[in-house]
């Protein structure tokens, strides 16, 4: 398949992730949809890396995976902290930063 097909798939995955981030209320699922967006970006990076025959895009995709792992770690830590404080686990209810 030509590179354009891979780019189309990456665009579809990214848009689906964006819709999920906008419309879902559970922060866990919002984090999952963020992963979808990052993966759409990763697919485009690797498709372009293949297009140029250059490994830089693959290294950048690995760095994106690292950042995603850090984001998951912090995000899940915050969700657990919210749950411990008996706060509603709902992004619509979270309106203030004060614990």
């Amino acid at each position: 398949m030509t590179i354009g097909w891979y780019l189309a798939v990456s665009a579809i995955v990214f848009s689906l992730g964006a819709v999920g981030v906008i419309t879902r209320r559970n922060p866990l699922v919002v984090l999952l949809c963020l992963e979808l967006m990052l993966n759409g970006g990763n697919l485009a990076l690797i498709a372009f890396s293949r297009m140029w025959g250059n490994g830089d895009g693959q290294v950048l995709a690995l760095v994106v995976m690292t950042v995603a792992a850090c984001e998951v770690c912090i995000g899940l830590g915050m969700i657990v902290a919210m749950f411990r404080q008996k706060l509603p686990v709902d992004v619509d209810e979270m309106r203030e930063l004060q614990g």
């Binding site: 398949m1 030509t2 590179i3 354009g4 780019l7 189309a8 990456s10 665009a11 579809i12 990214f14 848009s15 964006a18 485009a44 293949r50 297009m51 140029w52 025959g53 250059n54």
Partner: peptide, 22 residues
């Protein structure tokens, strides 16, 4: 967002888009 991304990605004018890569 999908339409904008498809225009941005597939309308780049890069010749490599229609090829199988290097």
């Amino acid at each position: 967002l999908l339409i904008e991304l498809l225009i941005a990605l597939l309308g780049t004018g890069l010749e490599g888009i229609d090829h199988y890569g290097a």
